[in-house]
């Protein structure tokens, strides 16, 4: 009986709560738009990625739920191949050892000031170092006619937007002295994601 009880508890934990809807991230690159920015003396480095995978379980009425999200380091582009290689290298994000940036929520609370805004606290992992992070996320549901007009796959679609700062030094990344004037320790990240109830098609191998 005991193993059965544990199994059913585990399944209950994995399944969305009765009022939660599961939205998937990563159907197509066009549904993911993430930018990151470093402002330093010499230049502002800006980069993008259109790759992210994850699941958002949300009770839109209560403003609660959970999020898991991962972004491959290899997908991050700054516009200069050599700089991207540096970014992936051992001295920076070490993509070979830590291929993904991940976020796993621990707590989602509705914001007091707006119905379509939530405060999400969770563990953000980069370069093998995990730090707790709290971000404000805004969501909007795409009206059914707009889903059709934009030719999105069938189902409900939400757009999630958020902005937050990440400090490289918090995650064990030290900027080499000779590029201190070119790269900032603090990076501003902006995310816009469309998440849909339709399951993404499995990757073709």
């Amino acid at each position: 009986m005991k193993p059965l009880a544990i199994l059913s508890l585990a399944l209950a934990a994995l399944a969305p709560a009765p009022d939660e809807t599961t939205f998937h991230v990563g159907h197509h690159a066009k549904f993911v738009n993430i930018t990151f920015e470093s402002q330093a003396d010499i230049e502002t480095i800006v980069g993008t990625t259109n790759v992210a995978k994850g699941t958002i379980k949300a009770d839109l009425e209560k403003g609660t739920g959970s999020v898991t999200l991962s972004v491959p380091v290899a997908s991050m582009k700054t516009g200069i191949d050599m700089r991207d290689e540096h970014l992936r290298s051992k001295d920076w994000l070490d993509a070979a050892t830590f291929p993904d940036l991940t976020f796993v929520s621990k707590k989602v609370e509705p914001a007091k000031d707006a119905k379509n805004r939530v405060t999400v606290t969770g563990d953000f992992s980069m370069h093998g170092v995990t730090k707790e992070m709290t971000v404000t996320v805004e969501w909007k549901e795409l009206p059914a006619e707009a889903v059709q007009k934009a030719k999105f796959p069938e189902g409900r679609w939400l757009k999630y937007s958020t902005e937050f700062d990440v400090k490289l030094s918090d995650h064990g990344v030290k900027i080499p002295d000779f590029v201190v004037a070119k790269v900032s320790d603090a990076w501003k990240v902006k995310m816009a994601l469309f998440a849909g109830t339709a399951k993404p098609e499995p990757e073709k191998k």
């Binding site: 930018t35 920015e37 993008t48 934009a150 816009a192 469309f194």
Partner: peptide, 27 residues
């Protein structure tokens, strides 16, 4: 891309940054 811009436009409300319609700002 254009279809996502259409979706963004449907979600945009007056007073919000207009760049949200066309993509994600870089800095």
């Amino acid at each position: 891309p254009p279809d996502v811009v259409e979706a963004n436009r449907a979600l945009w409300t007056l007073g919000e940054p207009v760049e949200k319609i066309y993509g994600t700002p870089l800095g």
